[in-house]
Simulated assay, not measured.
Amino acid sequence: MRAFRNAVIVIVAVLLVGVALAVYRAGGGEGSASILGKKSLRIGVKSDQPRLGLRMWDGSFEGFDVDVATYVAGRLGVARGDLTFIGLTSNEREQALRDGTVDMVFATYSITPERKEKVTFGGPYYVAHQDILVRAGDRSIENVSDLRGKRLCQAAGSNSWRRVTEERKVAAELVRASNYSECVTALKEDRMDAVSTDDLILAGFAASNGSGTTMVKAPFTNEKYGVGLRKGDMAGCQAVNRYLTEMYQNGTAKTLLTEWFGSVDFAVGTSVPEFEGCT
């Protein structure tokens, strides 16, 4: 009888722990699905994109996306020392949000209808435009139509190649790569002819010392960089949008864009982007 009572006590204790954990997660603790009220935040950024999200030799991250994330986190009440930046590739972003590896994503994360089915987006915090990167001196590609028959990078997890081959119906020869830094390396080594993605990304690569590449400067899409949040975090999304608006109105956005891209032969936009709305 005593053994039976002890077993019941153990079962009840396990159930109570499970209930307590569920309540904790629903109510704004460190396991909460919302970013609001957290004392620390894990933020997903790119690790291989110069001037946007780049991992440094000491393991720290720097770039425009990193600084925007730091600003928003600060307005949410989380200090710089309580932020953990985690490098993500394009095809890791949704899963990292779903499984709680990160709380937010600032990683040149273009808002698309397909992604909005899986992620709640704040912003956009910047509107980029898809362009083309080629080797310096290459005059054979002047616009998206010229990519027909050319070797074009297909970066894993990115939709940029679809804008060319599916939306514009340009029959480029796709060459797979794991990320855009690999694309640019292959471009410089003449293993592909062009890299096409957001101009802010391409500008960072083109401005790198000894890149040997140049932007065509023939934009053909709008790419709205969103702040990725776990699906359903409406309150967090609304707070993010307030702080992004503030960031543009008080001149912080212009300061950051000038700091990272002012020396690049590339015109950045400094007006407040039109927000998508939290869904």
Rank of each mutant, 00 (worst) to 15 (best):
F4S: 04
R5Q: 06
I11C: 12
V14P: 04
V14D: 00
V17P: 00
G18I: 02
A20D: 00
A22V: 12
R25I: 07
G28A: 10
A33K: 07
I35K: 08
R42P: 11
I43E: 00
S47T: 11
L52P: 00
G53N: 07
W57F: 07
G59M: 03
S60G: 11
S60I: 02
E62G: 07
G63L: 13
D65K: 11
D65W: 12
V66K: 03
D67L: 06
V68M: 09
T70G: 01
Y71W: 12
R75E: 11
R75F: 03
L76V: 04
A79F: 03
L83Y: 06
T84M: 15
F85Q: 04
G87A: 07
L88F: 05
T89Q: 14
E92P: 03
R93K: 15
R93S: 12
A96Y: 09
A96P: 15
L97D: 00
L97V: 10
R98D: 06
G100E: 08
G100W: 08
V102R: 05
D103H: 10
F106D: 03
Y109G: 05
T112R: 08
E114C: 02
R115V: 05
E117W: 08
T120C: 03
F121S: 04
G123M: 10
A128S: 13
Q130C: 02
V134I: 09
R135Q: 09
G137I: 15
D138R: 14
D138W: 10
D138F: 10
D138Q: 07
R139Y: 06
R139W: 08
E142T: 12
S145V: 03
R151L: 14
L152R: 07
Q154A: 14
A155R: 04
G157I: 11
G157V: 04
S158H: 07
S160W: 09
S160H: 14
V164R: 01
A172L: 07
E173R: 15
L174T: 12
S181V: 02
V184S: 01
V184N: 00
T185E: 09
L187C: 03
R191N: 03
D199P: 12
L200N: 13
L202G: 01
L202F: 11
A203F: 08
A203Y: 08
F205K: 02
S208M: 14
G210R: 14
S211I: 06
T213N: 10
M215Y: 08
K217F: 07
A218R: 09
A218D: 10
T221N: 13
N222C: 01
N222V: 10
N222T: 12
Y225S: 05
G226Y: 01
G228R: 01
G228A: 04
K231I: 10
G232M: 12
M234K: 15
Q238W: 00
V240L: 11
N241S: 10
N241E: 10
R242H: 13
Q249T: 06
T252Y: 09
T255I: 10
T255Y: 04
E259D: 06
F261Y: 06
F261K: 02
G262L: 13
S263H: 13
G269R: 14
G269H: 11
T270V: 15
T270W: 10
V272H: 08
P273M: 09
E276C: 08
G277H: 06
